[in-house]
Amino acid sequence: MEVLITLIIGVLTACGVYLALRARTFPVVLGLTLLSYAVNLFLFVTGRLTVGLPAVIAENSAGYADPLPQALVLTAIVISFAMTAFIIMLALKARAELGNDHVDGRPDPGAHS
């Protein structure tokens, strides 16, 4: 399970970084979204992966899952959700104001998308 989730986080991060470095706003937004997914998963795992343990404390249970990362992930999800919504609006506004979707606002005739 550890290997699988590490791979998922790694692939998500790699894709996110690659997309965030693209020159058009849409892939950049997607890349930042993937990065935030990766970091949310990562935060979730910081409490260690456990199976079948109660969320906080139960009477006849040996241990409990660490509740703090879950709280952190909730906060991080809310924040990244809001930020993504904001940057999507900003990217649309940039498309409207600058006339193209290049991140520097200049049309590059060489590239076709």
Partner: peptide, 14 residues
């Protein structure tokens, strides 16, 4: 402002 803002937001999100 929109251009500078887009860079600012993207960088800070990263």
């Amino acid at each position: 402002r929109v251009r500078a803002g887009l860079h600012f937001v993207a960088l800070n999100l990263a």
